[in-house]
């Protein structure tokens, strides 16, 4: 730090702060502002917070929207439904992603690049089109059912679409790369001599994995899990396209508030609560990661 001047330091800290303030804090404040207003017919469709009154300005803010979403258990159930689906998807992504990342990290040269390339290849096609492709595969007269019937494995088409199964499949499929890449990142920098040392000291392969590899890749596991959990929690497209009528997720509820009820203030209140509910696991994970680095 000694070589860096006062302005240099300010610039270094200031740029990311400015970025966060402009693209995270400011939009969040706008959402908070709307969540304290009332819905009305007009452009924009909510009441202003500051109203001119007798030459002065009066603050017109209400917590009614937050009262509404706490009094109706729909929102809590939708949030828990999302949390359950997202947690399950995260666990499955970890179970599938860890061996894949491990295999990529252990491979050499062109093979490694090719495998990494294959993980990223799906991003070249629109996410929406890939989800639609699953509909074509899973529908009653779809590819998978036709294959199963042709092979004689089932007589009637299996119900593969519009249920919890298809939503979970869609989530795992869509977010798997976000788990594999950070895991690969921490596995590829792992020093193989550490495992050799563990083996030399008499550790069996499983012991070596649990005692050395797993703890050293915890930051990758945490980063990958957050990268899957957070977007999966707010996911709206996958439950809408692949889910059945009883799939209750908070992203869809928020959509309904915004577009069906045209109640921007309630939609904003749901979003504020969602951000707050996300901040808790995020901060916990941050703590965990920091401790991991300190250790």
């Amino acid at each position: 730090m000694t070589g860096m001047g006062w302005t240099g330091r300010l610039l270094l800290i200031g740029v990311p702060f400015l970025w966060l303030a402009l693209f995270f804090l400011l939009p969040l404040l706008i959402v908070v502002k709307i969540s304290l207003a009332q819905s009305t017919i007009g452009i924009p469709p909510y009441t202003p917070l500051l109203v001119d009154h007798d030459g002065g300005r009066e603050l017109h803010a209400t917590l009614a929207n937050f009262a509404l979403i706490t009094n109706d258990d729909l929102y809590l159930r939708a949030y828990l439904g999302s949390l359950g689906n997202a947690a399950m998807a995260t666990a499955l992504c970890l179970l599938i992603g860890y061996p894949v990342a491990y295999a990529i990290a252990r491979s050499q040269g062109v093979r490694r690049h090719l495998l990494l390339f294959l993980v990223m290849l799906p991003f070249w096609t629109s996410f929406l089109i890939r989800v639609y492709a699953w509909i074509a595969i899973l529908e009653p007269n779809g590819l998978l059912n036709q294959c199963l019937i042709a092979l004689g494995l089932t007589a009637a088409p299996l119900p593969l679409l519009n249920n919890e199964f298809s939503v979970e499949l869609g989530l795992v499929y869509s977010y798997l790369p976000f788990m594999i890449l950070p895991l690969y990142g921490s596995l590829s920098v792992l020093d193989p001599s550490l495992i050799e040392a563990a083996a030399d000291l008499g550790a069996r392969p499983l012991q070596g994995f649990l005692g050395v590899t797993l703890p050293l890749t915890l930051p990758g596991i945490a980063a990958g899990s957050l990268l899957v959990l957070i977007p999966a929690l707010g996911e709206f497209v996958i439950p809408d396209l692949l889910g059945g009528p009883d799939t209750l997720m908070i992203g869809k509820v928020l959509w309904d508030e915004f577009f069906n009820n045209r109640d921007w203030p309630v939609a904003a209140a749901v979003a504020v609560v969602l951000v707050a509910a996300l901040a808790v696991p995020l901060l916990a994970a941050q703590r965990f990661l920091e401790r991991g680095h300190a250790a």
């Binding site: 109706d72 009528p245 209750l248």
Partner: peptide, 19 residues
């Protein structure tokens, strides 16, 4: 009216989610 619309959307969600 907004109140009716909200009740209708709410009933709709209740119907679809089966709860």
């Amino acid at each position: 009216p907004a109140a009716y619309e909200r009740a209708r959307t709410r009933a709709w969600t209740r119907l679809k989610s089966g709860r």
